[in-house]
Simulated scan of single mutants.
Amino acid sequence: MSIEQQTESTQKPKLNFRFLLSGAWIAGFIFCIIFAIITVFLGEWQMDRRMEKLDEINKIVDNYDIEPVPYDEAGHLFENFEEQHKWTPVIVQGEYLEEDTLVARNRPRAGEPGFEVLVPFLTESGDHILVDRGWLPIGEDATAPDTVPAPPEGQARIIVRVVPGEQTINRNAPDGQVASIHLPTVSEQLDYEIAEEAYGLMAGESPQMDVVPQQMPEPQRDEGPHLSYSMQWFTFGLMSFVVWGWLAYQKAVRNREDEMYGEREEDGYISAHRIERVKPVKRRRGQMTDEEIEDAMLNS
C-alpha cells in the first residue's frame, strides 16, 4: 500500500446516518413495522391452523382404532356429542329403516363426483340414529346413483364411528336427497326424530351384504404445510427490516464516498474518473529517463 493510500484510509470519515431522520426513510421504517405486524398475524393464523390439524390427528390416533364401545355406554354421543370422542367406534343392535333412505349429493371422491348413502337406524333401545353406509358414483343421468344397495333386512349388528353433523348450506335438493348431512334438516324430512348432533360412519355390519356402497376412507393424519408457511411469514417480516437497514448502509457508504471525492478535488488530487491522458515523450540523448518522466507525472 502506498503512502497516499495509507493517508487516505486513515483520514476516511465515519458513516453518517443523519439522513434516516428524513421523511422518506421514516416512512420506509413505518412501512416495515406495518408489514411485520401483518406477517406476524398471518404466521400466527397458520400456527392456529396447524394446531387444529394436530388436534384432529390426536383424535384419530386416540379413537379410530380402539375396541368398539357398546351403544349402552356411548349412545349419548349421538345426542350430546363430545369433540374429544370423535371417531369412536360404537356397536349398535337394531334394524335399518330402508324405506327412509336418503343420499347426500355433491360428494366428490378421488376427483369423481358421487353421493353418500344415509339410512336411519332404529336401535334396540328405541333411538333413531343416522348411518352413513358409504359412497356411490353418479348414475347415467348425473342426478342420482344408478342403484342404491339395500341394507340387511330385520335385525342387524353394526359398528359405526361417531362424527358430528355438518353445517347447513341452505341449498335445495331433489326428493330423497339432501345437500349436506345437517341432521335437523334430515329429521325434518322424516316422520320421526333422529339424533341431531352426531351420526355414524359405517365401519362394519352383520349380516354382510353382497353389494354395499364403498366404505369411506380413513381420515388423513397429515398436518399439512402450515408450520413451514408460518415460518415463511415470520421470515418475511424480519427481512423487511434487514432490507431497510441494508439500503440505509449503502446510502451512507455512497454519501461518504461523494464527500471524500469532493475533498480530494478541493485539495488538488486527481479524480479517478478525471485522469487526463499524457502524451508519450520520445527519448533523446540528454533527456529524462522513463522513470524520471513517471516521477514527474506523479508529482504534478
Rank of each mutant, 00 (worst) to 15 (best):
F115N: 06
W135P: 12
V117Q: 15
G126D: 04
W135D: 13
E112F: 04
P151E: 11
N58I: 00
Y64C: 04
N58F: 01
E112N: 14
P151A: 15
E153W: 00
P145A: 07
W87I: 01
Q84I: 07
T88F: 00
F81A: 06
G139E: 07
L122Q: 15
G139S: 04
Y96W: 11
E112L: 12
D62E: 13
F81D: 04
D62R: 14
Q93H: 13
V90D: 05
L102V: 06
Q93F: 10
F78T: 10
Q84L: 03
V131T: 09
I138G: 14
H85G: 00
W135Q: 09
F78H: 05
H76L: 00
P149V: 10
G94V: 01
V90M: 06
P113R: 02
I129Y: 04
T123A: 11
E83I: 11
P151C: 07
V92R: 06
P68S: 08
A74Y: 04
T101D: 11
F81Y: 15
E140V: 14
R109P: 00
H85T: 02
P70L: 08
H128W: 06
E153L: 04
L136A: 11
P108N: 06
Q84G: 03
V131N: 07
F121I: 12
D146C: 01
T123L: 11
A74S: 12
Y71L: 08
A142Y: 09
S125N: 13
F81S: 04
Q84R: 14
L130G: 05
V131M: 08
P137H: 08
D127W: 03
N106T: 10
D72K: 15
